[in-house]
Simulated scan of single mutants.
Amino acid sequence: MDYFITLEIELMNEDAASIMATISRYVIAKNIQNDEKHPLNILEDMLFDIKDSLIGSKEYTMEELELIKAKFEFAREYADKVIEAAEKED
């Protein structure tokens, strides 16, 4: 696998882990980890699946990685907005 692709995958895994940690801290703090329908729990599950697929044996192109990276960026923005809106309600 190309060095730059490998590096990009490692960086994306770290980014996904960071997003998932933010979600997990909030979900645990609000005691909603068992609410399977809560958007943050759904988002965390989706991120886990995407992150897990990066570790698989498939070789990715930089274009594919850019699309996955965009999903992670969207996930971070969405999680931040959900958390921010919930904190305003409290």
Rank of each mutant, 00 (worst) to 15 (best):
residue 1 M to E: 10
residue 1 M to N: 02
residue 2 D to V: 06
residue 2 D to A: 04
residue 3 Y to P: 05
residue 4 F to L: 10
residue 4 F to C: 08
residue 5 I to V: 13
residue 6 T to H: 13
residue 7 L to I: 08
residue 7 L to D: 04
residue 7 L to C: 05
residue 8 E to T: 15
residue 10 E to F: 08
residue 10 E to H: 12
residue 11 L to G: 02
residue 11 L to V: 01
residue 12 M to S: 06
residue 13 N to P: 02
residue 13 N to I: 09
residue 14 E to K: 14
residue 14 E to Y: 11
residue 14 E to W: 01
residue 15 D to S: 12
residue 15 D to E: 13
residue 15 D to I: 05
residue 16 A to C: 11
residue 18 S to M: 09
residue 18 S to Q: 13
residue 19 I to N: 07
residue 20 M to T: 04
residue 21 A to M: 08
residue 22 T to R: 12
residue 22 T to G: 13
residue 23 I to K: 12
residue 23 I to H: 09
residue 24 S to E: 02
residue 25 R to P: 01
residue 26 Y to V: 07
residue 27 V to E: 11
residue 28 I to V: 10
residue 29 A to Y: 10
residue 30 K to W: 00
residue 30 K to G: 00
residue 33 Q to D: 07
residue 34 N to E: 04
residue 37 K to S: 01
residue 38 H to K: 08
residue 39 P to W: 03
residue 40 L to A: 02
residue 40 L to W: 00
residue 41 N to R: 07
residue 41 N to Q: 14
residue 41 N to A: 04
residue 42 I to Y: 06
residue 42 I to Q: 15
residue 43 L to K: 11
residue 43 L to I: 04
residue 45 D to S: 09
residue 46 M to N: 13
residue 46 M to S: 06
residue 47 L to G: 05
residue 50 I to A: 05
residue 50 I to G: 01
residue 51 K to M: 05
residue 52 D to T: 15
residue 53 S to G: 02
residue 53 S to I: 00
residue 53 S to P: 00
residue 53 S to Y: 12
residue 54 L to E: 07
residue 55 I to D: 10
residue 57 S to P: 00
residue 58 K to H: 05
residue 58 K to R: 14
residue 60 Y to R: 08
residue 60 Y to S: 08
residue 60 Y to E: 04
residue 61 T to Y: 13
residue 63 E to A: 15
residue 63 E to S: 15
residue 63 E to K: 15
residue 64 E to M: 09
residue 64 E to P: 02
residue 64 E to S: 12
residue 65 L to A: 03
residue 66 E to K: 15
residue 69 K to G: 03
residue 71 K to T: 04
residue 71 K to F: 10
residue 71 K to H: 08
residue 72 F to V: 04
residue 73 E to W: 14
residue 73 E to D: 10
residue 74 F to H: 04
residue 74 F to P: 01
residue 74 F to V: 10
residue 75 A to C: 01
residue 75 A to G: 03
residue 77 E to F: 07
residue 78 Y to Q: 10
residue 78 Y to L: 08
residue 79 A to M: 15
residue 79 A to W: 04
residue 79 A to G: 09
residue 80 D to Y: 01
residue 82 V to A: 03
residue 82 V to K: 13
residue 83 I to C: 08
residue 84 E to P: 00
residue 84 E to L: 04
residue 84 E to M: 06
residue 84 E to G: 02
residue 86 A to D: 11
residue 88 K to Q: 07
residue 88 K to A: 13
residue 88 K to V: 02
residue 89 E to H: 06
residue 89 E to F: 03
residue 90 D to M: 15
residue 90 D to Y: 10
